[in-house]
Design a binder for these strands. Sequence first.
RNA 1: GCGAAAGUGGCGGAAUUGGUAGACGCGCAGGUCUCAGAAGCCUGUGGUCAUUAGACCAUGGGGGUUCGAUUCCCCCCUUUCGCACCA
Length: 867
Amino acid sequence: MPYESKLIEEKWQRAWADAKVAEVDVAAPGDKFYMLNMFPYPSGDLHVGHGRNYILGDALYRYFRMQGRAALNPMGWDAFGLPAENAAIKRGIHPRQWTLSNIEREKKQFLRWGILYDWSKELASCDPEYYRWNQWLFLKLYERGLAYRAKAPVNWCPSDQTVLANEQVIDGRCERCSTIVVQRDLEQWFLKITDYADRLDEGLDTLEHWPEKVKLMQRNWIGRSVGADVEFAVPSLGKTLRIFTTRPDTIYGATFMVLAPEHPDVAALIADNPERAEIEQWIAGVRNQSNLERQEAGKEGRFTGKTATNPFTHEEIPIWLGNFVLMQYGTGAIMAVPGHDQRDFEFAKQYGLPIRMVVAPVTREVPNVDNLTEAFVVKDEFAMAIDSGVISGMPTPRAIERIIEEIERLVIGRKMVRYRLRDWLISRQRYWGTPIPMIFCDRDGIVPVPEEQLPVELPLDVPFTGREGNPLAKDERFVNTTCPRCQGPARRETDTMDTFVDSSWYYARFISAKDGTKIFDSALANRWLPVDQYIGGIEHAILHLLYARFICRTLHDMGLLDYEEPFTRLFNQGMITKEGYRDAELGTWVSIADVEWVDGKPVHKGTGKALIAETSKMSKSHFNVVPPDELIEKYGADTERVYTLFIAPPEKEAEWSDDAVNGASRFLNRVWHMGEQVLALDGRSSSDREAVAERVAAVLVGPSRHPLTRKTHQTIDAVTRRFDRFEFNTAISGLMELSNAIGDALASGDTDAGTLRESYTTLLKLLHPFAPHITEELWSMFGNEGFILTSSWPKADPALMVEDVVTIVVQVNGKLRGQVEVPNPPEKDVVLAAIRGNGKVQQWISGKEVVKEVYVPGKLVNIVVKG
RNA sequence: GCGAAAGUGGCGGAAUUGGUAGACGCGCAGGUCUCAGAAGCCUGUGGUCAUUAGACCAUGGGGGUUCGAUUCCCCCCUUUCGCACCA
C-alpha cells in the first residue's frame, strides 16, 4: 500500500479537531506547561519560513503532551496594524474585512500543517472585546501616572500627512512615497517605561533560560550607566547648569562645557550675544536634521559667549553648543574633558579649545598633550588620576568613588544612575488600532473615558484615502462627544495605540479569553503564568519583549499578577532564506519564471541581462517565497515538518532547498513501508512457538540485549535529551539512524519479530512530534487504541543502552602513556590496532616489550610496557 | 568605533566531561530494475599517494598545554549579527 499523505493527514486533522485534543480546562489540576508562539500579524499567506516557527512549537507541544504535562498551546492574532490600512487604501477593502479573511486563511494553514492549538481560547486584538481591555489598561496606567501626554519630535511625512514609525523611515524617506521625512513637534502619549528601567535591567539576571544574546541586546538598549550629576555655576546668569558624567574623576580636565542645541537655557545664554541671529539659525538647522544627518555633518558647535565655573579647578570655562550633545540623554549638557573623551577631543581640536591630561597610565609616561592624536580613554586599574587634587595618584575606579564623595560633600551634585532607555511613544495617527480612551474638554482639559463607557469603539464606516491623515480625525460622529465631567461638548482623542501595546499582555488574556468582566482572571493567570516556553523570532528581541516585561511589571504592581517576568524560557528560531535573482545593474528583483540559465549563469529571459543570485529572507518582492500548499500537495505536511526541522539547528538561519526536501520524503516513505513489513512479520510469528519462546525468555533472562534493542534505547535517550535542548535536527538524524538499523535488521532476517516490533513502535512514538499524521496512522495500524499523541513518551533503560567498552590504559614504568577505548569483546588484533592507530601511543609501544596483555570484557585493561 | 557569536567535505551540518573527525541528509558516481526514463533499492563518496595492504595530510592561520585537541590557553585573519556621538 503506498503512503497516501493527503488522505492520512486529512483524516487525522479531522480526528484531532473532533476530539478537541488540544483544549485545556484551565481550572483542572495538572502539571501545567504554558507554551506560546508569538501571535502572528495576519498578513495573508504564510510561507514555509513562518511554518518553521509554528512547526517547531507544535513538535514541542506534542513532546510535552506525551511526557504527561498539562500543556496549553493557545493562538491568537496581532490583528491591528498598518498593512491592513494600506490594503484598504490600495484596494478599497475595509481593514477589518481584510484582516478577518487573512485570519481565516492562516487558520486553515495551521490546520494543514497539523498544528494543534487550543482554539477555544482564540483572540484577536482588533476585536472590541479584546481592545476594551487595552483601553482599560491604558486608563489604569494613566491613573498611576504611567501614561502622560507631552510634546515630542516625530517623523512626519508631508505628502501622506501622517506620522511614521521609525521603522517606516528608510534612509530618511517615507517608506511608501519616498518623500523626505521631516521632524515635527507634536503632542503625543507616552508610557513611562523609564520608571522601570532599573527593574527591567535587574530582572534580566533572573532570566536563566533566555538566550544570552537577547539579554545583552536588552541590557544595551536599557543602557544603564553609573556616574554623577554635577552643577556648574554660571556667574553671569546667576544659576547653575547640571551635567551628567560617568567619569567624574576627570573633572579637573573639564576645560569647557557643551550643551545640546535644544537645551532650555540656550536662549538665556545667547540673549546678549552679538552673533545671536547666526547662532539661532544654526540651531534651527541642526534641529531639522535627522540623527543620521547630524552625525554625518561631523562635530559642529557655537560659542555662547558665556562661561561656567569648574567647581574643582575654579577656572572659568567656556560654554559651547554642540550638535553631538543629545537633549534626550542625561541632562542635555556635558562637561567636556577633551583629554579623555574622544568626542570632546575632536571638538576641542576643531575649535582650538584647551586640552588637559588628568589621567595617566600607571606604568608609562604621561602622554604629551601636544602630540596627542586621540583621547586617552582608560578607566581600569592601569590608569590613575594626576594633577587632580585629593584624588591625585588614585587608580581610576577608586578615584571615581572618592570624587563622588567629594562632590556630595560640597553639595554640588550626587551619584547618579542614568539609562539610555526613552519613554515609549504610543500615539499613532492611524485608524486601524485601539482608540486611546481620552477626551479633550475646553473646560476640564484632558479627561479619561470612564471605565463603564469602554470600549471606545472604532467606527467602521470611514473613508480611506490615504492622503488626509488619520480618517478617524475626520469622523465627526466619533470625534464629537460630551465631557464625562461637565457634560459639555468635548472632543475625543483620535490617535490610536501602537500595536505593541496590544501584544504586551495578550499572553495573560488567553487564560480567560472570553471573560467579559475583567482583563483576565488573576487567580487563573497566577496558576498558568508565566509562560513556560515562548517561541518567536529574534526581531522581537528588544521592542516586544521589553514592552511585555514592562507591562507585566505594571500588572504586578496593580496586584493583578504575582509575577514580574512574563516568559520563563525564550527561544528564537532562525529565519528561512532562499535564493532570489536580481538585475545586476538595477538591483531589482526578478521573478523566477523570468530566469534562464546560460553557461550556468542566471540571465533575464526577455532582455538577456545578467542577473545576480542572492539569498535572502522570503518575501513576495524578492520572488523567493515557497508556499506550503504545493509542497503539502506533493509530499504531505509531515515531510515539510521533518524537512523544516532537519534543515539546520533551529536557532540558525537556514536556506531552503527544494532538492533536500526529497530526503525527508524518502525517510517517511521508508518508515511507512517498514511498518507494513513489521506488521506482516508480526502476523506470521505471533502465534507460533518462536513468539512464546521469546516471551518466556524475556521473563527468565530479562529483556533482550539485541543490538537493535540497544540502538533503540540509545535513540530514546538521545532524542529526549535533544528535545530538551532544542536540537531537533540531530534528534531527527538519530531517528533516521534508528530507522536504518531497523531496515538492516529486517533485511538480514536475523532479528525476532518481538524485538523488531518493539523498536519500530518506539520509533513511531519518538517520531510523532515531527511527523504526527503518519505516525498516528501507523500506530493505529498496529492495533493500538487511542491517539499516539496521548500515549506516553518512551523511557530509556540505561541497562539496555550501554555499549560494552573496554578502556585500555598503556603504562610505561607505571606512568600513564596512553589510553584508548575499544568495543567489547576486544580481539587481540583490535586492541593492538587501536593502540597503533591512536595518535602517538604507537611511539611508546614500538621497540618496547609488552609484558602483559589482559582482555576482560567490561573492565579496564592494563598493558604494562617495560621501559 | 563598541559589543556579541561563529569559521569542520561540493552543500546543510554531527562529534556528553579532551578520546577512532566528518554521524544524518542533500548532491555526485557506479550498479540493479526497465524497451527507455522516473521512482525505489544496493554500493561508493574529505584530500594526496598506492594495484592492494596501507601510508601521510586535514576542523580559518600560527603557537602552546597534553599520551591524545574540532574541543582548553595565547596571538592573528575572516564572516555574520546587534548598537551606534548615550557623555
